[in-house]
Design a protein around this nucleic acid. Structure first.
Lengths: 246, 246
DNA sequence: CAGTGGTCTAGACCACTAG
DNA sequence: TAGTGGTCTAGACCACTGT
């Protein structure tokens, strides 16, 4: 191990460390307010930017959440489970956040984006029926998703713009004999870009999870593909799957 | 929409935006060096900290990687696929990174941590056989994992410390009639803590993925549980699973 | 209004890397 | 040694929030 011993922590590191243990060991519970910049400056005899830097470390670790003009607070680390095999995958909408919860939804027909075309086995430029959803929980968006169905199938299953009918696209596909029998999901994780974070009203340093899902009917035909973006701090993703024999 | 128009971007935002589009549209390819602090100061007539702040935005978005004394560079966004149903789940070790690749491994017997005991259906304080792995790719650790097997099963399957035999624990369990038949995985995403990031030699703002996996034999007995920590920027996780009839 | 965090400056010193 | 990024200071002004 050529790891150099941490020797003497820098001022901002020392402050960050002390605050962090307070959070992790529970002395500072979720929602609790941290010592502010001004008091940190006095208590540790450091300059403004140094106190700020310490607080920035914690925010970058996703431990805190900053409210301008108010203060710095410990984040709520609770998560909602998303079980991929279930329908709907997200059973309960985030109960942790007070305030209104809802889903915004629009539908239209577009030419399939490249990666969606690939997932659905379509040729470039083919039409798909698209439904875009946006889920709110409290003040922030917790989920954004786009569902794509090949145009031919959509027509066959009587799926039209603006109205997927009772039970959603699932039910229509089922009625048309294309009930989804198995699915594939590809998960990617990354940090949101700044404009994106604002759009999703993501606060602090929170990773984003993107899920590209493809559903197949019992004949192996790709019947729908969806792309979902989740606030990574609010979900736990769960999968159940069989293992191959050999 | 009550979203206020961005009006006039702040100096640091403007700099960050210009650099970002350069990266996203490909003018600045992976590995390319960005304009440094000093030149940004002159080119935009801003102070040190302002130029630094612009660069920090990109680093926080996981787009760049900073090498002290050298410069700021565009990250390589390529990922390795981890297919949960396959064995091993990670087919190819990161081909993108030159340099040595390897796995460090130690095994011992310990009392099961609480969440592992829960996953394996053990009572608190029961013994498990543990194997800890650490995978390197180039300079950085790309994976850390701990595998737990109930002591009783480990004995039955002739799994001992320091030597899991050819084919690993899988093969031993199989021979003992406890071949894993299905698995459950729970995925969580978060930002690494500072000490943790140093330990994993994670550079820049990169989310971490933790996977808690439990394998069951055909009788539904939990035969092994594992906890894996991945550098979220380097992997794409893939799942294939059947969907329920109803 | 007082208190909070957000941005910015000008200048200093340090640590690391390469040629 | 020259050039890079990392830390820190002291002070300024702004924007937002609550009372």
């Amino acid at each position: 191990m050529e790891v150099p011993v941490p020797s003497k922590p820098l001022p901002y590191e020392r402050i960050a460390n002390e605050l962090r243990v307070g959070i992790i060991d529970g002395r500072l519970a979720a929602g609790a307010q941290l010592t502010g910049e001004n008091e940190l400056m006095q208590r540790y005899s450091v300059a403004r930017e140094t106190a700020r830097k310490a607080l920035r470390v914690l925010r970058d670790e996703g431990l805190t959440l900053t409210r301008r003009g108010v203060g710095v607070f410990v984040r709520d680390a609770r998560r909602v489970s998303r079980h991929a095999s279930r329908n709907p995958a997200i059973a309960a909408v985030d109960e942790t956040s007070a305030g209104m919860v809802g889903v915004e939804e629009v539908a239209d027909n577009v030419t399939a984006p490249e990666h969606i075309a690939r997932a659905l086995g379509l040729r470039e430029g083919e039409l798909v029926c698209r439904r875009v959803q946006r889920q709110y929980a409290g003040v922030s968006t917790t989920r954004r998703s786009a569902l794509y169905i090949p145009m031919g199938l959509a027509v066959e299953a009587s799926i039209t713009e603006l109205d997927f009918g009772p039970g959603g696209a699932e039910a229509r596909l089922r009625e048309a004999g294309h009930a989804p029998a198995r699915a594939n999901e590809v998960i990617r994780v990354r940090m949101p870009f700044r404009p994106e974070a604002e759009d999703m009203r993501i606060e602090g340093a929170v990773p984003i999870v993107t899920i590209l899902r493809t559903d197949y009917d019992r004949n192996g035909l790709a019947v729908q593909a969806s792309e979902t973006v989740l606030d990574g701090s609010r979900y736990a993703l769960e999968y159940d799957f069989p293992l191959p024999e050999a």
